[in-house]
Design a binder for these strands. Sequence first.
DNA 1: CTGAAAGCGCTTACAG
DNA 2: CTGAAAGCGCTTACAG
Lengths: 328, 328
Amino acid sequence: MKTTINAKDVAKLAGVSQSSVSRVYFEGAKVSTKTREKVLAAAEELGYRPNEFARSLITNRTKIIGLVMKGVQNPFYPQVLTQFANAFKHHGYSVLFVHTNSDEIQAEDIETLLNYNVAGVVITDASMSLNVAESFKANQIPLVFFNRKLSHSTFYSVCCNNLNAGRSIGHYLMAEGLRDAVYISGNENTSTSLEREKGFGEALDQCTLTYAKHTSDFTYEGGYKTALNIIKNNTLPSAFFVANDIMALGVLDALRKHAIQVPQQVKVIGFDNISMSSWPAYELTTWEQPIEEMVEATVNYLMSEIANYSGRVEAVEIEGKLIERKTT
Amino acid sequence: MKTTINAKDVAKLAGVSQSSVSRVYFEGAKVSTKTREKVLAAAEELGYRPNEFARSLITNRTKIIGLVMKGVQNPFYPQVLTQFANAFKHHGYSVLFVHTNSDEIQAEDIETLLNYNVAGVVITDASMSLNVAESFKANQIPLVFFNRKLSHSTFYSVCCNNLNAGRSIGHYLMAEGLRDAVYISGNENTSTSLEREKGFGEALDQCTLTYAKHTSDFTYEGGYKTALNIIKNNTLPSAFFVANDIMALGVLDALRKHAIQVPQQVKVIGFDNISMSSWPAYELTTWEQPIEEMVEATVNYLMSEIANYSGRVEAVEIEGKLIERKTT
DNA sequence: CTGAAAGCGCTTACAG
DNA sequence: CTGAAAGCGCTTACAG
């Protein structure tokens, strides 16, 4: 009950050797035009397509990139996913999608990636214990942490320059007459949230200003509740710096509910520039993450490491920019 | 430069045959506890993991499901993606993610899926020409169209019952005192948009009411612009039925911009029940798609077809329900 | 229950 | 440029 047709079948029909068939489909191999044509004609007739598995078994490489994502619910990530999918497709790679529920990726989550011997890995918005990550190193599989920096700098990472962004946002708000500020953070211990806060604090410190910190969780509901609490406690600041846009939208809705005027009574600034930030209902001032460049840097690194593994490591940080709208 | 360690290495260390090693990792094969333990100990020591490619080459099956998605930008889809990823993981399958830009999936988009000999395929929110789809049939690869019905009913599809939903929405609005309605459609020729409209029209027809149709594109911007046009032309109806939520939010923002009171001056109802619909800024009345059940039906079909291919075909339609909020 | 051997569909030195 | 042959790392009848 042999059902799939293989290179041997094509070879027979084309009247050439199996090796020649293989050469037609293997990039970089040499075949005469005549042989190529015969093979392609036979292949067409039989509906032949090379088996990727046999191919990978021999070459010990695959054309698959593992993409590990957490929190696809944040509208920032669908954008990232789309761009990665397109970029990898453009380079001839397919995407094995792994969804993780936890902030720290578990060994089982990435077992698949190792079993399939992926050519490279992108991990977005999540970290990973050192010894789990090491298994990629051991197999010389290049790995990029996207939008998350590890405390141990033994892996390549690509982020927006969050420290500078925090600073710029601080200076911007001070120029707008900031008196007291609240920073609404994302999940604790995420590098993105921490660095944005650090830069912000540094800027304010230069003018001996301070800020209050409220810990939240990078979700709309989290931003909404946090703001409601602040309103209830009568501790409304003159400006909110919110660690991401989706939370900032929650903050805006909480303020709206209490008929607090933005930006007259309080200013709000977010981070990411998700598409919803520009909606008329919000018109949120925010910091744009340079997603395209971030994706490009990630893909370029992976492609160069796949071609020629070096294990080089860097913490790439790309500058974003302020998008001024109506909440400041 | 042999780098990966294989079953033979483990066999040698464990003092058994390679076949025995294989049996330990192959579900359903019989090995004595003693052998199993020896093998597992040796495997642990060497860091062995079975090569999926060699395995697939022999069994001619993979543990990969192809997931083809369009328009991940609509917040409805990240939810769907997450649920599929979790469900497939639970069944021991990985997800090969394919992003397509066009409404109709092209042959090249799915070439990868055939090359990797995926065990099954889910296509969301897009259609596919019959002859492209046929190549899956030829290879006995089960295929489900998710949230899209094909005109030719030769494939399995899973949708919300859009016709009934349209009807119910029509009856609901009429009970609320509908006089004249506007239906804002999604992309033309999508089954979801067409069936929602059809049901809606049927319901209205029973009371000899009619509706005006405006064609849009399932995006926020599309809904926004369409509503602005209607306002400009002074053809505001007493209610809008908008083919999906993200467009409905655009409609609400357009109305807000012109200070038109919802629901006093005009009612708005959407479709999908995306998380943003419940946000205080919108409080959109909508129709909830039973995503969980839809995903479950899809996964169950695929798993049963993978276990035992029958090629059976059905257009599954699951009932959703009205979520009443403040825009009606 | 276990091992030796064949074979899945490819790539790749090696001769010619 | 081309073909015959070995081999990638597994699974699976087949004997024992």
